Amino acid sequence: MDLKNLQQQIDFIKEIDKVKYIQRKTKLFNSDRNENDAEHSWHLAMMAIILAEHSNEPIDILKVVKMVLIHDIVEIDAGDTFIYDTQKNHTNTDEERLAAKRIFGLLPQKQAEGLIEIWEEFEAGLTHEAKFARAMDRLEPLLQNTSNNGGTWNEFDIKYSKVYDKKKIIDEGSRTIWDFAEKLIDESVEKGILKK
């Protein structure tokens, strides 16, 4: 038994508990309570499993689940950037890369390298798995905002064009889900919960 590896793994497990304390701007379905990153990641994993048949291409669902479970771990150090933030760009940053190296670096080297590789793949968004994982990441807040009568769209005065622009990436992972999402966006305008 390799006790050094076990201790590193336990240290990592303790460290990622902090994900539960990272508050997101979006709120739970039909609720006024903000979602945390752990809830978000779990929900994406379940969505990926349930919706996998709608992927544009065949995917390794275990890899997608890994991606969505670890994609926001870097926010322990880098913080959560609101997708509609006008001050800070919602793209991979040097700050997030440093966070990935530090946090995943708590693990034994081989595991650390494997998780960093999966995280990088998600961030790059080029593989079928990454495209589908990113589609899930953009779909969940859309479902939340529509269930909350506009939720963060109204709270932060987010307009249709911004929502459409940020959500159209769903199409890269699933045309079927994008068709559904596009209808939700249009219906939100018709209901008055998303302003043109």
Rank of each mutant, 00 (worst) to 15 (best):
N154R: 13
L126N: 10
T146F: 08
E140T: 15
G150R: 03
G151H: 10
I118P: 13
A124Q: 09
I83V: 13
A135N: 05
G125S: 07
A100G: 04
R97I: 14
K88Q: 12
E155T: 03
K110C: 00
I158A: 01
I118E: 14
F104K: 08
T91P: 06
I103P: 06
L98T: 03
I83Y: 13
E140Y: 15
K110S: 02
E140C: 14
E120W: 05
E140G: 12
F82R: 08
K88L: 15
Q87M: 13
Q111N: 11
K110D: 14
G114K: 12
L142H: 01
E96F: 01
L115G: 07
W119Y: 09
T93P: 07
E140W: 13
Y84N: 06
A135K: 07
E155V: 01
L143K: 11
Y84E: 11
L115F: 05
I103N: 03
K110P: 03
T81V: 15
N92E: 13
T91I: 13
T127C: 00
E121S: 08
E121I: 00
T86Y: 15
G114H: 08
F156V: 01
N145H: 09
T146R: 02
K162V: 11
T127V: 00
A100K: 05
Y160G: 10
Y84P: 10
G125F: 06
N149V: 01
K110R: 07
D85W: 04
E123Y: 07
Q109S: 14
Q109Y: 05
D157A: 12
F104W: 04
T91V: 13
F156E: 14
K88M: 13
E123L: 05
E113F: 07
L107T: 00
D94P: 06
D137P: 04
L139S: 09
S161H: 14
N89I: 14
R102L: 04
E95Q: 09
L142M: 11
K159E: 11
D137Y: 03
L98I: 10
G105L: 02
S147A: 12
Q87E: 14
R138V: 12
Q111A: 12
A100P: 00
L142G: 03
A124T: 09
E96H: 10
G151Y: 00
